[in-house]
Amino acid sequence: MKAHSLFARTALVLGLVFLYLPILSMIVFSFNNSRLVTVWDAAHSPTLKWYVALLSNEQILRAAWLSIRIAVISASAAVVLGTLAGMALARLGAFRGRMLLAGMTAAPIVMPEVITGLSLLLLFVALEQLIGWPKGVGAVTITLAHITFCMAYVTVVVQSRLAGFDESLEEAAMDLGARPLRVFLRITLPLILPAIASGWLLAFTLSWDDLVITQFVAGPGSSTLPMVIFSKVRFGVTPDVNALATIMVLLVATGIAISTVWMRARQKRRARDLQLAAAANL
């Protein structure tokens, strides 16, 4: 038992090093003075000059702002559609078109992005020919595309939360006189809210991060942040991208640290409550 548990533990540590080493190196070199990214210029480092350069880069700032707007709208719309789809799949039982909906929500998750991107662009082109909308490609088509692939993820999250949901809670509410809409608003929604929230965060991240699909459905003047980064790094490394990466890692890490601390505190409180309840039984 000992030997292979030791092996697994070593693998875990090495794996985590593998996962974090590149991120760490980006953070370190974002403070490097040299343009040569990977050669540490000990004489003039650390420096914040790449952060200054980044924050005065109009193009990056504009792209970031566009990406944020698209991600917020896409995530919000995806949450609504994904919650509906998740509810339908988890609760409606066998309805007509169930297989179709289940297939269509699961497929975008594994579909190679180039194919999704290509098919969406061809749709938009065909639509424009047919009904004259959308007029060209740009922020609108990007958002539509993002909603589509994000909602698939939200559906999965909501659906699996509902699968572990005690349906008698809803029946109890109905039994106590609540009509179906009230049951949803007072009981179901508050209880699946954590799943919806994590679905929203997931959707936001996916939209914020997406490059391949976006490239297909973007037009001139609608470059998102990943598109700008891609065009920069495709032709070599640039130190201001390191600075950008550091800022993003920092934001995410802070957010996750806060949520972890909060969750720990909650867990502790729960454990205490459980002891209290157990004591009451005696």
């Binding site: 005690d166 008698s168 029946e171 109890a172 109905m174 039994d175 106590l176 609540a178 009509r179 209880l191």
Partner: peptide, 30 residues
């Protein structure tokens, strides 16, 4: 007559207490 209009109430095997509501709110719900 749908369940929410019947003069009938039920105590569930799992109790089905609403986990996000206090005891008072649970009892007041009906």
């Amino acid at each position: 007559i749908p369940p929410y209009e019947r003069p009938v109430n039920m105590m569930f095997q799992s109790y089905a207490l609403f986990p996000h509501m206090s005891v008072e709110r649970n009892v007041a719900f009906g």
